[in-house]
Design a protein around this nucleic acid. Structure first.
Length: 270
DNA sequence: AAAGACACCTGTCCGC
DNA sequence: TGCGGACAGGTGTCTT
């Protein structure tokens, strides 16, 4: 489900309830997520959440003792509820707060994770070698250009590589490449600096706009208040294979790149 | 080192 | 209606 905008929307939704609240209990109903939920997660009980940050698609609930790392995988979602609200199917983890509220993770496919890290959270194995955040000045065309010179992978796969830049998943990779007029099939090393400049701007724009709109709801993503994300209305190509290109009217094509569905206009994207 | 396949798991949708 | 198969927003790991 969630790409960076959906994770950021989740962060913004939960932060006001979590920051400065004390964790009074953690209930793990199913520890078998992408990685087993560690027993040490219970060390967070009694701690006060000092901040709720995001790195890539990881949510970081920081306390004075350590950090709870949450990833939503493909199908995870977070709600803030009164802790008395009845549990539903796939509600795997509750982080109960002294306010009577509770942060509840629901994840049907269980590709998500909940981990506990003591010390500098950015040194966690999963976070240590990530590329720059796309919405910062560290994400530049120059960087893409330099790191791509020897690369033969399709530029779409390159853009989705977390070592290059984080947070660009399948929906927004398709959208940004369409907006930039770059063929997703083109070898990353065959894209000019000038065109990477356009691509970087389009990535920033599509992600920023999606965050503003509350993310993209395809099936089941909801904001933490239960509302859908409205960016789905803005999608140009994702999920629109066979339909006319919004720019030129040609039929949009579909193919697999790196096992992922890829939609593009053969006319507008070169 | 780089590219591609595969794995994890459940729900949904489509064709027969 | 039921069943089999394909597919889905992610990403670490294994194989070439």
């Amino acid at each position: 489900m969630p790409e960076l905008p959906e994770v950021e929307v989740s962060r913004q939704g939960i932060a006001p309830y979590l920051e400065n609240a004390q964790i009074t209990k953690i209930v793990v109903r199913n520890a078998q997520l992408r990685w087993p939920v560690p027993m040490t997660l219970q060390d967070a009980v009694g701690c006060i959440v000092t901040s709720v940050r995001r790195r890539a698609k990881y949510l970081l609930l920081e306390t004075e003792k350590g950090t709870i790392i949450i990833h939503l995988g493909m199908s995870g979602s977070l709600r803030v509820l009164d802790s008395t609200v009845a549990v539903e199917k796939h509600d795997h983890v509750d982080i109960v707060l002294n306010s009577g509220k509770c942060l509840r993770l629901n994840d049907p496919r269980r590709f998500g994770s909940v981990l506990w890290q003591v010390g500098d959270v950015l040194e966690h194995k999963l976070l240590a070698s990530l590329g720059p955040e796309p919405l910062t000045d560290e994400f530049t065309a120059q960087r893409l250009f330099e790191r791509s010179r020897t690369r033969k992978v399709p530029v779409k796969s390159f853009l989705m590589d977390n070592h290059i830049v984080v947070g660009v998943g399948n929906i927004y990779a398709n959208e940004a490449l369409f907006s930039a007029g770059i063929s997703p099939k083109r070898a990353a090393g065959q894209v000019s600096l000038q065109r990477y400049k356009v691509l970087v701007e389009e990535v920033k724009q599509v992600l920023a706009k999606a965050i503003e709109q509350g993310g993209t709801t395809l099936k089941d993503f909801t904001q933490t208040d239960g509302k859908p994300g409205y960016f789905v209305q803005e999608l140009q190509v994702y999920g629109k294979a066979g339909k006319p290109c919004p720019k030129c009217g040609e039929v949009l094509q579909a193919m697999k790149i790196g096992q992922r569905n890829t939609i593009y206009c053969n006319q507008c994207q070169r």
